[in-house]
Design a protein around this nucleic acid. Structure first.
Lengths: 227, 227
DNA sequence: GTAACCAAGATTGTTAACAACTTCGTTGCC
DNA sequence: GGCAACGAAGTTGTTAACAATCTTGGTTAC
């Protein structure tokens, strides 16, 4: 194994899958970059069989492309796809918000509101890193309260595909402020116990992320193609 | 594939994945049944490496479970999970219905209404097989009209998990009649071009399937545990 | 000077053998 | 008679070698 830590008992392919997925999600491999099996074998100190199986699985997860006899590469995602992914997130997280509203305990409500307060402090301090982290924690909390395993797995998959686009949205001017308002609405409606309302605010929030994505894309094009 | 036909050029693992998935979905392997690698090697005339990779992928798809050093088996799905899957389908197909309503051409509308008519004839003839087939065609048509690739892939995955429960719902007494009404409503609202309305009818339809699932489960328990 | 072609290198697809673990039946002991 | 340790068979986890395919660079003919 790469890590000197534990012998990790086995299942070498799972280790490679996780390491590679993290690497791609953290941007250590650029979209479109080739992923030769030999390189990955050396990088992760795994056998070729493990690397190979890991690539098949990541292809199945949609973050790697493979062409027969031509190897694997990091799959680039287009704006259209990022929008689709966010739309799908909108309806699934909407489902989670509805379930969460129906199931939330007093303790859950307390935790959500605490996260809302933290988010406000991050925005006040203009701390983008903290904003992004707490943002994820809020969505994660709603998902956990919903206790909907199928929805959770689907969100996992969508997140791995969209994360590179995702974290940049917070960099748009004015975005954290908008996001704060929307998240507070989501939190309050989930805590109110009204499933339909909670679903609505969650969907509204994520549709606003769709708009932010499109705006972000327009900005990128403006930079790439200077008038 | 067992068929002697073509050497199939390559990618042996994909062949095994498809064959095994079909086998499980068609009920040729019972839930909980063990799937020893050696048996699959012989059954599909593939190498163990291909079989092994296929099992990893099917585990990722959620229709097979594997335990370290203890092999793979067909993953049983509980009622709770079937309900979760249908709830997830409800929101995603709701998204598709909304998109479809916004995008449908005159030709699309014609095709949908033709399918609706066919479904009515199948119900009138009490032809359960035809009902199930046309049912799937209608959902497939809405999905195609929506042209939402991400949603389509998610539905593919959900379908492979739930298909065994799914086709039995049509056997409930009175179910085809209810299903006909709901499908006709879905078709008409999609054709009306109102996204919100189309989404609503599609979700209502699938929530009614959830109820049918629970009713089916109650019936099964009554059979298994005779008072 | 360009285009087709060929050979060497690099990369992936496939298979077989080896090692480790679990399970189940047996034997010996309490 | 029951329980625990032992061992053999079966199954999975891992690795290495071999075969097929693609890419690349140079050469040759036109």
């Amino acid at each position: 194994m790469a890590a000197s830590g534990e012998p990790a008992a086995g299942e070498a392919v799972a280790l490679v899958v996780n390491a590679l997925r993290d690497g791609i999600m953290q941007g250590r491999f650029a979209p479109g970059q080739r992923l030769p099996e030999a390189d990955l074998v050396e990088l992760y100190s795994a056998s070729r069989g493990a690397v190979r199986t890991a690539l098949v699985q990541l292809e199945n997860e949609g973050i790697v492309e493979r062409e027969r006899n031509r190897g694997a590469r990091v799959r680039p995602i287009s704006l259209e796809e990022a929008v689709e992914i966010t739309e799908a997130r909108a309806v699934i997280e909407g489902l989670c918000a509805a379930k969460a509203a129906a199931r939330a305990t007093d303790e859950d409500r307390h935790r959500l509101r605490a996260l809302g307060k933290e988010l406000g402090e991050a925005v006040a301090a203009a701390d983008v890193m903290a904003y992004t982290r707490i943002n994820q924690q809020i969505h994660r909390a709603v998902r956990d309260i919903a206790a909907h395993e199928t929805a959770g797995l689907m969100l996992d998959r969508l997140r791995t595909q969209s994360v590179r686009y995702h974290y940049t949205v917070a960099l748009l001017p004015g975005r954290p402020s908008i996001g704060l308002t929307e998240h507070l609405q989501v939190i309050e409606t989930v805590c109110s116990g009204d499933p339909a309302l909670a679903e609505h605010t969650m969907r509204t929030h994520l549709m606003s992320v769709v708009e932010a994505l499109q705006q972000l894309d327009a900005n990128l094009h403006r930079i790439v193609t200077p008038g």
